[in-house]
Design a protein around this nucleic acid. Structure first.
Length: 590
RNA sequence: GCCGACUUAGCUCAGUGGUAGAGCAAUGCUUUUGUAAAGCAUGGGUCGUCGGUUCAAGUCCGACAGUCGGCUCCA
């Protein structure tokens, strides 16, 4: 087993083989750049260089490109590193504007310019690229690779630049490793919440309603509500009181908060028949909560003042940014805001962090904490005074250090109004999702002129903490569908139990059991359709119901039920025993 | 929004210019069943929308909408 660096080199070399093959097949294109990544490699090229006819490459061409790549690999060409001067480099890549740009940058930074030859330098069938390396020694070391997808990508990732074509692929040391990776991709696809959500009848999208605007079925609405309640119970413990705020507000509100200037184009504008005044659907709750705070004069004794709000939010996301339940135009948050004195910030942060921990626990997901700081090279991107930012950031660090909370500080991830703590959850497939966030706001209370009277009778500006415990219930539902592959734990399952009478003469007993389940609030369905028992079991299994209660002559006679779990195991027990078992399991949220 | 692909029955999909198909689901009848699919029958589609080419369009061309893979963005 070779190390991770070797795999990286291998992928980097595979990427060189890819662009050699593409250049051989389509000589008119310009090669831009391409790195190895944690998953494989990609490579960007300009398929419509100025003055040349555009070529179209689609995934249907992958077979042909892969064939050409194998050709290059089978020749086992040596890959060699050479240092050259900037002048030589300019000459060597004279026709390629993208390479010229790299060379100029290297010149400015006084970097050594290196090139890699695949094959003997300057020989027929060889390829040269401007590249920092490193690479494996020869193309023959690439034993397994596959091209995966094709997409557009902006040069330097900037949407003002030209759109290039990007080919994604991956390479491994062996065919077995590659197959394993491809299998994992398939698994992830099977868990896709858009597919499962439809199959499990949790939500639907409609052309008539619009993109990013889901309709939740009774089952989906139930899961959404259960997640809200899960959070609500916990946040009440730390003093958050639920409020309700309007979905539409005047533009003035967002002008005051500062959102208008930055997010005007990402908000839904509402037209009124009776006034020319601008209105917007609200994209966040904080300005409303500031207004609520300002509705009375506040004493230092009242603080901290904590509001929570599950209100619907609307954001006019660009069509291409929408993604199942992960990115919506209509969604909600388990949002909350705390107005407090400076000496209360530590405790408030810690309280919320505690609740976040408790809220994530039942999902069996690991997570890490990101301290999101401003971009110290570009402090002008953020609102407010530099000194206040610096002291706020070190204050957050202090809180974490003092309480031995592990975190990773990341620059440039702060909100425009202040630094924050983000909780990044890791799902069953090892993928990371930002869910919770606790943010310190240095700006908004001042903009709304919020004050409180302190002990000496002086007016002071409170601090504001924005927080979301699990983020958005809708987004979380999508995440959890994938995390559990649709098989929800009992407390979250829309259908916890299905009762399956074997034949018609067992239906009456089934109805009695149904009544007992109803009495203790278990969510069940009774399948009294005239189908074979095997078929009913199959249907229930596919609906991922947690427990099936199968009733035949034996059970009815003994007053028992046959309990079939989702994993296929079965066990006979008395009805009251089953009720206890289910009650305990729901309460423990296991 | 940008680059590319896709859109046929409730779902999954076949159909390469000549009268729209399958499986599952649904409905009806028969069967009354022991741990993942009983049998037979029936209904269901202006082939995403609009326009064009053609004697003839699900099929070819264009526009628009939506979905998917990415890019950009995410208060």
């Amino acid at each position: 087993m070779k190390d991770k660096d070797y795999l990286y080199k291998l992928r980097h070399s595979a990427e060189h083989v890819l662009h050699q093959a593409v250049k051989e097949l389509y000589p008119s294109i310009h090669l831009a750049m391409g790195p190895a990544t944690d998953e494989g490699f990609y490579f960007d090229f300009d398929n419509s260089p100025e003055g040349k006819e555009a070529v179209t490459i689609t995934d249907a061409d992958f077979k042909n490109i892969e064939k050409r790549m194998w050709n290059i690999i089978n020749k086992n060409l040596p890959i060699t590193r050479h240092e050259i001067s900037a002048k030589e480099a300019h000459k060597l890549f004279a026709d390629n504007p993208y390479k010229q740009e790299w060379i100029e940058k290297a010149e400015v930074n006084k970097e050594v310019i290196t090139i890699y030859w695949t094959g003997e330098p300057n020989a027929q069938g060889s390829m040269v690229d401007l590249c920092a390396g490193p690479h494996v020694d020869s193309t023959g070391e690439i034993k397994a690779f596959k091209l995966l997808s094709i997409a557009g990508a902006y040069w330097h990732g900037d949407e003002k630049n030209k759109m290039l074509t990007r080919i994604y692929g991956t390479a491994f040391e062996s065919k077995e490793d590659l197959d394993k990776y491809l299998w994992q991709l398939e698994e992830a696809k099977k868990r896709d919440h858009r597919k499962l959500g439809k199959e499990m009848q949790l939500f639907v999208f409609s052309d008539l309603v619009g993109p990013g605007l889901p309709i939740y079925t009774p089952k989906g609405a139930l899961v959404r509500r259960l997640l809200q309640e899960h959070v609500n119970v916990l946040q009440k413990e730390i003093g958050y009181k639920e409020v309700w705020t309007p979905q539409v507000t005047k533009a003035d509100l967002f002008k005051t908060s500062g959102h208008y200037e930055k997010y005007k184009d990402d908000m839904f504008r509402v037209v009124s028949n009776y006034t020319d005044e601008e209105y917007f659907l609200k994209p966040m709750n904080c300005p409303n909560h500031c207004v609520l705070y300002a509705s009375q004069s506040r004493s230092y004794r009242e603080l901290p003042l904590r509001f929570s709000d599950f209100a619907n939010l609307y954001r006019d996301e660009k069509p291409g940014e929408l993604l199942g339940l992960s990115r919506l135009r209509a969604f909600s948050q388990d949002d909350g805001h705390c107005f407090c004195r400076e000496d209360q910030v530590d405790e408030e942060f810690l309280n919320v962090a505690q609740i976040v921990k408790k809220a994530i626990e039942p999902f069996n997901m690991k997570y890490w904490i990101r301290l999101s700081l401003w971009d110290s090279n570009h402090p002008e991107k953020y609102l407010g005074d530099k000194e206040i930012w610096k002291s706020a950031q070190s204050k957050l660090k202090d809180i974490l250090d003092k309480n031995n909370i592990e975190y990773t500080a990341v620059e440039g991830e702060a909100a425009i109004y202040g630094p924050k703590l983000d909780f990044i959850a890791i799902d069953a497939l090892g993928r990371e999702w930002q869910i919770s966030t606790i943010q310190l706001d240095l700006i908004m209370p001042g903009r709304f002129g919020l004050t409180y009277t302190d002990q000496e009778g002086k007016e002071k500006t409170p601090l504001m903490i924005h927080r979301a415990i699990l983020g958005s219930p809708e987004r979380l539902m999508g995440l959890l569908i994938e995390h559990y592959a649709g098989a929800f734990p009992l407390w979250l399952a829309p259908e916890q139990v299905r009762i399956i009478p074997i034949s018609e003469r067992h239906v009456e007993a089934a109805q009695n059991i149904a009544k007992s389940l109803e009495d203790i609030g278990v969510r069940f369905e009774l399948d009294d359709k005239a189908l074979s028992m095997q078929k009913k079991i199959r249907n229930a299994q596919q609906s991922k119901v947690n427990y099936m209660l199968i009733l035949g002559d034996v059970e009815v006679e003994k007053g028992e039920v046959n309990v079939r779990s989702r994993d296929g195991s079965t066990q006979n027990m008395s009805i009251s025993m089953f009720l206890d078992k289910v009650k305990n399991e729901i309460e423990s949220k296991k």
